[in-house]
């Protein structure tokens, strides 16, 4: 049950002098259960891209298919689609509006037509998934910390029980602790619930250690669509896009230039450590 984008183009303010061609011929296929990172520089079109996946933006030309059905066809139930493809916007805590946490999370399932009891059950399950204990349920969402608010907002989308969860910059503006919390929650969701997670970010470090596949968006085009280690091989091109590979990639390449045969495709600190230790022992400890 994949989501597919076929030759999608999107023009912003078409027909005025402010017209901008945001997406150009985007082709993409996302399978259920994947863990994807979408990276691109600010203004590269990545936020526009993801809003096509749940029908919030309408492609100027091209098709978006959900399980083979055109989501922009007349009579297609796009509200139901939004329950299946959950989208968490940037700074999602800005969309909270209810007087207490539990009611706010209930908003999604209630819109789907569930009764109060069922909605509450789903809300509790969602809050549990993001790791917020029951003591939070009756508190006002506005008195929570930034990381907690964000978890409430993510739970608000999770309560609709989506098959796909798309998050636009979910770690923006959080301290390292809050960032790790959110990334941990996402990993869990993918592993335990089998939800396909699509993570939009411009931080390579976030993406490198979590996702299985990276889509690089540049100027409304898809520049790369491959597993992390393959994408990071192009670290020089990534730099010209205003992006960067993880720091360990640079270290690995620098070490190779010095003649130490480390694996240049390492993407995480752990892999780098193993590779460096291996290379050093292979040299018989002649270095240091």
């Amino acid at each position: 049950m994949p989501i597919e984008m076929k030759q999608v183009n999107f023009l912003y303010q078409a027909g005025t002098p402010m017209e901008v061609h945001v997406l150009t011929d985007v082709n993409l296929k996302i399978e259920k259960g994947e863990f994807i990172g979408i990276i691109g520089h600010t203004g590269s079109g990545k936020s526009t891209l993801i809003q096509h996946l749940n029908g919030l933006l309408r492609a100027s030309s091209g098709q978006v298919l959900m399980d083979g059905e055109d989501i922009f066809a007349d009579g297609y139930d796009r509200r139901k689609l939004r329950g299946r493809v959950g989208l968490v916007f940037q700074y999602p805590e800005h969309q909270l509006f209810e007087t207490d946490v539990l009611t706010d999370v209930c908003f999604g399932p209630k819109n789907q037509g569930f009764s109060k009891e069922e909605a509450e059950k789903k809300a509790r399950a969602a809050l549990d998934m993001v790791g917020l204990p029951e003591s939070f349920y009756q508190r006002s969402p506005f008195e929570l910390s930034g990381g907690q608010k964000r978890r409430v907002a993510i739970a608000g989308v999770l309560a609709m029980e989506p098959d796909y969860l798309i998050l636009d910059e979910p770690t923006a503006g959080l301290d390292p602790g809050g960032r790790d919390e959110i990334l941990g929650v996402l990993k869990d969701l993918h592993k335990k619930q089998g939800i396909a997670v699509i993570l939009v970010s411009h931080s390579m470090e976030d993406v490198a250690q979590t996702v299985e596949r990276i889509i690089v968006v540049q100027n409304g085009h898809i520049a790369y669509d491959a597993p992390p280690r393959e994408v990071f091989r192009h670290y020089k091109e990534l730099e010209s896009y205003g992006l960067s590979a993880p720091q360990v990639t640079y270290i690995a390449h620098a070490l190779r230039e010095k003649g130490i045969p480390v694996d240049p495709d390492v993407t995480t600190v752990e892999e780098a450590k193993q590779s460096i230790l291996h290379a050093l022992s292979g040299k018989g400890g002649s270095v240091c």
Partner: peptide
């Protein structure tokens, strides 16, 4: 516009 979209993503009509 952004808030409206965010609420639409949560099924608001």
């Amino acid at each position: 516009d952004k808030i409206q979209k965010a609420q639409m993503a949560r099924g608001a009509n």
